[in-house]
């Protein structure tokens, strides 16, 4: 355990000192401050627009962070052979996978937490600026719940990064696969709904139905983590829903890490 934590700390330190992270944080902060101006443009549901913009910024920063900093942290290890210095230590491959994963999510968590703090400050400021009637539906609980869901999604997405890094040697391929998985995960539910309606109407062959079902089991359902729209209208999801989602993401992450370590154990590092 000590060794895993040491590796996570190493990964986190390497990531936090990356200039790309600084750039992403600055972009995030600028976007957050820009929401102050943009909110004023809208007419009625100011609270909705404000929460939308803030949550979207946080999500966007998280995506940039995962796609460009975290993938780099993972793939560069093998690309540039920095992995030698880690694996020449008494760490098993599984410990390596877990340590790296913890380092990545720590990085995402800290970065998003900072943005969340700033964004809360901005919301508080804007709220005190306009009449309360425009913030009828606003609720801090909903805002925080949406942030929590978002961070949870990044925990899963980073496990996807780890999984693809264990298969591929090139950071570009990891990026490509991860983005593809992300897009699929975000849209799969909607596409399924559409297909199901079609299937009802036109009697698609049974095999299509199976493929659809299997795809839903393989790909993570990222759209379940997106409750930004609900949060912006002050709709709080019940605790059971949150628990179900936590359970789902935890088991999906564990499975991904498990497969990653299986593959990685077999792999030769040359």
């Amino acid at each position: 355990m000590n060794r895993i934590l040491a590796l996570s700390w190493l990964t986190f330190k390497e990531g936090i000192r990356d200039r790309a992270l600084m750039g992403i944080c600055i972009i995030g902060l600028v976007m957050l401050f820009a929401t102050i101006i943009f909110t004023g443009v809208f007419g009625y549901d100011l609270g909705k627009v404000l929460v939308d913009l803030n949550l979207s910024t946080i999500a966007f920063a998280g995506l940039l962070l995962t796609f460009f900093v975290n993938i780099n942290l993972m793939a560069k290890d093998i690309d540039k052979r920095t992995i030698y210095c880690v694996l020449s230590k008494p760490l098993s491959r599984t410990e390596y996978i877990i340590g790296k994963y913890l380092g990545l999510i720590l990085l995402v968590f800290i970065a998003l937490f900072i943005l969340l703090m700033v964004s809360s400050g901005i919301i508080w400021f804007v709220k005190s600026f306009y009449a309360q009637i425009y913030f009828k539906n606003f609720s801090w609980a909903c805002f925080l719940q949406a942030c929590f869901y978002e961070i949870l999604m990044f925990f899963v997405l980073n496990a996807v990064v780890i999984f693809f890094s264990s298969i591929s040697t090139s950071s570009f391929l990891v990026l490509l696969f991860t983005i593809a998985t992300y897009i699929t995960g975000q849209t799969i539910e909607e596409v399924m709904q559409f297909f199901k309606k079609e299937a009802m109407a036109e009697q698609l062959p049974q095999i299509n139905q199976w493929i659809i079902d299997i795809a839903q089991y393989i790909f993570p359902n990222f759209s379940a983590f997106d409750i930004k729209t609900l949060a912006s209208h002050g709709k709080f999801l019940p605790m059971e829903h949150t628990m179900a989602l936590i359970g789902y993401s935890a088991i999906y992450t564990i499975l991904l890490l498990f497969f990653a370590s299986l593959i990685f154990n077999k792999r030769e590092i040359t």
Partner: peptide, 24 residues
Amino acid sequence: PENPYYYDHLSAEDLMKFSATTSG
């Protein structure tokens, strides 16, 4: 390793601390 390459943004001390900790 041959042509050693280490993490860009860490210092020699960070690396050595990691090495020492993981070796127990």
